[in-house]
Design a protein around this nucleic acid. Sequence first.
DNA 1: CCAAAAGTGTTCCAATTACACCCATGC
DNA 2: GCATGGGTGTAATTGGAACACTTTTGG
Lengths: 230, 230
Amino acid sequence: MTYSNKEQFYLAVDCVIFGFDNDCLKLLLYKRDFEPEKGKWSLMGGFLRNEETLDEAAHRVLARITGLRDIYLEQLGAFSELNRDPAARVVSIGYFALINIHDYNVNLLKQYGAEWFGINELPALIFDHADIVDKSLRRLKRKAKNQPIGFELLPDHFTITQLRNLYEAIYQSKLDPANFRRKILSMDLLDRLPIKDMNSSRKGSFLYAFNQAKYDRLTAMGFSFDISGL
Amino acid sequence: MTYSNKEQFYLAVDCVIFGFDNDCLKLLLYKRDFEPEKGKWSLMGGFLRNEETLDEAAHRVLARITGLRDIYLEQLGAFSELNRDPAARVVSIGYFALINIHDYNVNLLKQYGAEWFGINELPALIFDHADIVDKSLRRLKRKAKNQPIGFELLPDHFTITQLRNLYEAIYQSKLDPANFRRKILSMDLLDRLPIKDMNSSRKGSFLYAFNQAKYDRLTAMGFSFDISGL
DNA sequence: CCAAAAGTGTTCCAATTACACCCATGC
DNA sequence: GCATGGGTGTAATTGGAACACTTTTGG
């Protein structure tokens, strides 16, 4: 082998899984089921295998705990501090995933001892997983401004108020309801459904759906999503 | 070993090295000096070693070809397609570096057969290095809007026109000289030196220096660099 | 004096902000 | 009827875009 004098490394993926529960941004964590640090709270992770890419490994890991395929998934970067895992030199590739919090397989979650934690109420995490969470939060805040990824965290049908609550949870700040509504609707990315959600108010509020085709068409014409300011 | 049933991988770093030569953004490439693909144009790279982090490996690689330490360096992400390197399964971590193009060690460059190429005149590259270059260009364009990293590509003292030329090279579009000057100076990040550069015009133009301390102070107060629009 | 780049002034327009106000309905 | 969140209207302000104009000095 050409590179046989070079060293080799264990490669892992660790996934930061975001969900949104009406007014609070949450992370899915599980109790690690092998040594070292068995029983401690951890990101969902796994080792890379020879026959797969890193993206495939991350999807495999996500499917194992949530039962979901076709999840929004994005690579964060590599974490390579020498003693991040005390048992061996392991380089980990962080990923962050956005899922609809009501969409997962409850049985799998129970089986793995997984739980949702509010972003401000996280338990202690093993290794450098808190760093990975930090980085993914920063990434989420940045990307949510310039790309319509927030919708990945909502059900297919949602009210403008729910969408605003999501952005308020991500940026931990209040947004003006009137201006937010106008700005979002002015982009013409949402279809208003002929259905009202009657739970949130007497008057009821219309449900909307994100229209990916419209977004793609506008993007091709030079449009770019932007909710900065607000 | 706890993980002894897991597979291991070669890990490499590959560096996209940017420079700016008055009106053109350039990349530093070299002729690969080992098999496979020996003699072909390649990003500067190297294998990760046991005793170093990925960032350290990237700095080591950069110092080898440029002689420079303390370079602006940022991780791009991991590239893990199965056959990206036909000789073996190698996962590569891409980096991008910004250097002052007049600051490198000419002898080292000669020794490695390295050359600067205009960003629009790149030769064919080995493996997936063109993908890594693409990604770093997109990253540079994004980051240069929101962080004052452009200065890494300029000499310590520069004119406003040189700075504008740099942004015009990055975004491949013309900027209004009057508005650009006002916007940059209004941020109050530059110190005007009592020196004029007399080469560019009869009147001469003042030299400026980026003031990192001012930037840090403003940033701490909630300021954020932004040259979007223009 | 003139060319050419540096640098200043000014107008116009569109987007953001802040907040007042109207609407529909279950109780 | 009235409280509540949904939704619309609007005046004031800001900041970007465009471009005319002034400055300086080597030839």
